[in-house]
Simulated assay, not measured.
Amino acid sequence: MMEYSESMWPAASPRLSKDSPLGESVLMGIRAAQTAVNLNQTIHEALEDLRMRTIDGPLVSVYALDDDDRLVGQVSARELLFSPPKTLIREVMTSDFTVVTINTSMAEALEVFHQKRLVALPVIDDEGRLVGSIELEQYARESLARAEREHVRQVFQTLGLAVGASEHMTAMESFRMRMPWLCCNLGGGILCALIGWMFEDLLQQVVLLAFFLPLVLTLGESIAMQSVSLAVGSDSSSRSLAHAMRGIRVEAAAALMMGVLCGVLVAVTSLLWGGGASAAMTMFAAVSVSMFFAAVCGGAVPMILQWLRLNPSVAAGPIALVIADTGSLAIYFTLGLLILMP
């Protein structure tokens, strides 16, 4: 048998979105009730019966059934081991226990686990017959696997995609779902091209800027998407404006530290490339400022979309990428013009 401590349960009940896979039926996660005995058996008979079975995992609870297999009681492992052998199961069982029905969702069952601090949860059908049970360790593994799938779904949704949706879509439905976000990226690309055209003379005179341009854009895009993912995954709908602003400040401070470090590395690379001190200063300033800007945008866009009553999980990613690209490009060229051009 296994002992369970308070630390095995989460400190707070997990928040579940309405689209979470945990909305599935609890039947998806139950196992056969391997520790069910008849309430008219003695302790000795019940133990002998259990010894003849192959029981997976620790013995945490025994379920007492009537002659029609209806669940009528529950016996703790302690009572089973320390009660006199001739004691009837009905004499040591308790009728005060928690059950869920086959109509319960997995999210609701998880909430019951958290609130009641259970180690096992029996599942009954509409007539009260025992169908199976969910145990804490087994359910924790199931929840973790589903949480990982939910995380993957959120990441793809942030990029404007729906995992698995294409299996049931027509070509036109797929076009309507994806084209708006492609248009958003297309518009951002055109804006970047216009910004590049405005600084054409600078690029012709300082060719080194063109070499590091993809790096600056990549760093800005990466940190913007990280900020979007953190903001969307933090359940911003339940947070106040003060909490949201604090999150943006924390993200901005972290981005500034990462930007300074990346800026130093890029500046050193520029020096080794033979670009000179002015070029290195430009790279350092451009990388630091653009990463800071992209992180603030990535944290602010979901909050603004939430305020506009739009779904940040879908729209925040493409919009933040466009702002990060155009902003980083403008910062890069402007600093290059101020520092490198006489």
Rank of each mutant, 00 (worst) to 15 (best):
R153V: 09
L144I: 10
Q138F: 10
Q138G: 09
R149A: 05
V131E: 10
V152F: 07
D125W: 03
E150D: 12
R117L: 14
G128T: 10
D126V: 03
V155I: 14
R153I: 02
V131H: 04
R153D: 05
D126E: 15
S133A: 12
V155W: 05
L130K: 03
D125R: 00
S133P: 02
R146M: 08
Q138C: 01
F156V: 09
L130D: 02
F156W: 07
R117C: 04
G128W: 08
G128I: 04
L144W: 11
Q138H: 13
R141M: 15
I134V: 15
V119I: 15
V155M: 15
L136T: 00
R146H: 01
H151R: 11
L130F: 04
A145T: 09
L121G: 02
G128K: 09
Q115G: 00
G128P: 09
D126K: 15
Q157G: 02
R117G: 13
E137M: 04
R117P: 06
L136S: 07
V155C: 11
E142F: 09
Q138K: 08
L118V: 08
H151W: 12
F156K: 06
R146Y: 03
V119A: 11
E148P: 04
H151V: 06
E142W: 07
G132I: 02
Q115A: 11
I124F: 02
E137A: 12
G132M: 05
Q115S: 10
V152I: 14
Q157I: 00
R141V: 14
E127S: 11
D126Y: 05
R141S: 13
E150P: 13
G128S: 03
K116L: 00
V123S: 03
P122W: 01
V131I: 12
L118F: 07
V123K: 02
A145I: 10
E127Q: 14
T158M: 13
R117I: 09
V123G: 00
Y139F: 15
V155D: 10
L144M: 10
V155S: 06
S133H: 04
F156Q: 05
Q157N: 08
R117Q: 13
E135R: 14
L130M: 10
H151L: 11
L121D: 04
E135P: 01
G132N: 00
E137Y: 00
R141E: 14
A140W: 05
V152N: 05
E135K: 13
S143V: 15
R141C: 01
G132F: 07
L144V: 13
H114Y: 13
I134D: 05
R153L: 02
Y139M: 13
V131T: 01
Q115P: 00
A145V: 04
E137K: 08
L136K: 07
E135V: 11
E148M: 12
P122Q: 01
V119N: 08
A140C: 01
Q115W: 12
K116E: 15
F156I: 05
